[in-house]
């Protein structure tokens, strides 16, 4: 089981969290149909680092961005989604 370091709550067991989707599949509201189909229905799915949207559903309920290696399960960073939203890269 992963140990996820929630920015609000500290290190917590994965059982408290829910995976939502890879960041690359988030749909911009004003996207064209082609972009929507591309975003919703295709995945890079690489054997490497995956940037994902998770939620601390059984904790503080914050949306989180977690960068995670899908072969080693190493967690590279956990950040509050709202903070990223306010300062988009």
């Amino acid at each position: 089981m992963l140990l996820i370091n929630c920015p609000h709550c500290g290190p917590r067991a994965q059982a408290e969290f829910g995976f939502e989707r890879p960041v690359e599949t988030i749909l911009p509201v004003d996207a064209s149909t082609a972009t929507m189909v591309e975003r919703l229905y295709t995945r890079t799915n690489a054997r490497g680092v995956s940037a994902e949207l998770w939620r601390h559903s059984h904790g503080c309920r914050a949306w989180l961005r977690i960068d995670r290696h899908v072969v080693t399960h190493e967690i590279l960073c956990v950040a509050l989604w709202v903070a990223l939203w306010q300062a988009p890269q």
Binding site: T42, R43, N45, A46, R47, V70
Partner: peptide, 18 residues
């Protein structure tokens, strides 16, 4: 299981998550 990885070697993206 590894379709996404192998298809990726040909530059393709699939509607698949592993």
């Amino acid at each position: 299981g590894n379709s996404g990885h192998v298809a990726g070697l040909a530059g393709l993206r699939l509607p698949v998550e592993s």
